[in-house]
């Protein structure tokens, strides 16, 4: 039995939803309210060592016959390698290397940066005047995840942090625009997990940093091309969320080397 515990179809939660739809995998979807901290309650099974230390911060949890998996990109790699359906990973070693290099850049640079802007713009206002429940705080093992929640409650996003995030989003958009010169998708002619990942994070950028996405014709065409896919359309409509691109919770840590 395969179960996916997920929140709104945005960012890390969107990625596995798209892969499940693309490959038509038989999976029970279990919605979780992250703002009600259901991911730390008894709606989810007791967590394994790895998933307690989810390096992604808040994100999807996949359970297959008791085995638990987190980290949206690698969870998608698992789905692609464990299930039939159209392959979403290249077989060519160079293209495969480009896909993994994208994943690393996304996990450590792009995702944390989009997430910082998203938490400031959309999460912090929802938490204004509230305090973090102490019992939940005690259940979060990773200090950077605790600190990110507290930062959002306190609406404490120093200008230097915002500038740094915007700089890194610019790097990501430059990288995407450059990759698309050679073909309709990030790895060339074939749609892959790199596109699923980059699309899922990029989807909020027009609201988070409208000035940064201007003048990027290849990026805009690519976004529209992916958004038009039936599997992507279906995923974006899951649970009837209104503007899921505005839904954020604390994400991965910014790379400690910058």
């Amino acid at each position: 039995m395969l179960e996916l515990y997920h929140w709104a179809p945005n960012g890390p939660w969107l990625k596995p939803l798209i892969v499940i739809a693309e490959k038509q995998i038989d999976c029970t979807l279990r919605p979780i309210d992250v703002l009600a901290f259901e991911q730390y309650g008894d709606k989810v099974p007791p967590r394994s060592l790895e998933t307690r230390l989810n390096q992604e911060g808040e994100g999807p949890l996949l359970v297959q016959d008791g085995k638990q998996l987190t980290e949206s990109f690698f969870l998608c790699e698992f789905l692609d390698s464990a299930f039939d359906g159209p392959a979403l990973r290249p077989t060519n070693p160079v293209a495969f290397n480009r896909m993994l290099a994208w994943a690393r850049f996304s996990n450590e640079i792009f995702m944390p940066s989009a997430n910082t802007l998203g938490c400031r713009q959309f999460l912090a206002p929802q938490l204004a005047g509230k305090t973090m429940p102490v019992d939940v705080l005690g259940k979060i093992e990773l200090s950077f995840v605790r600190e990110a929640w507290q930062r959002a409650y306190a609406n404490d996003f120093p200008p230097a942090m915002i500038d740094d995030s915007r700089r890194k989003i610019t790097l990501a958009l430059d990288r995407i625009e450059k990759a698309l010169i050679d073909g309709p998708y990030l790895l060339g002619k074939d749609y892959s997990l790199a596109d699923v990942d980059a699309f899922s994070i990029s989807r909020s950028l027009p609201v988070l940093a409208p000035d940064l996405v201007k003048g990027r014709p290849l990026w805009a065409d690519w976004m529209a091309r992916i958004e038009a896919r039936p599997a992507v359309q279906a995923s974006l409509q899951i649970d009837g969320w209104y503007q899921p691109e505005n839904v954020f919770a604390p994400g991965p840590e910014h790379s400690r080397w910058g």
Partner: peptide
């Protein structure tokens, strides 16, 4: 094995 592959990725990231 896909789950062991995932564990490998998880620990590499760690």
């Amino acid at each position: 094995d896909p789950y062991e592959l995932w564990r490998m990725r998880w620990w590499c990231r760690f």
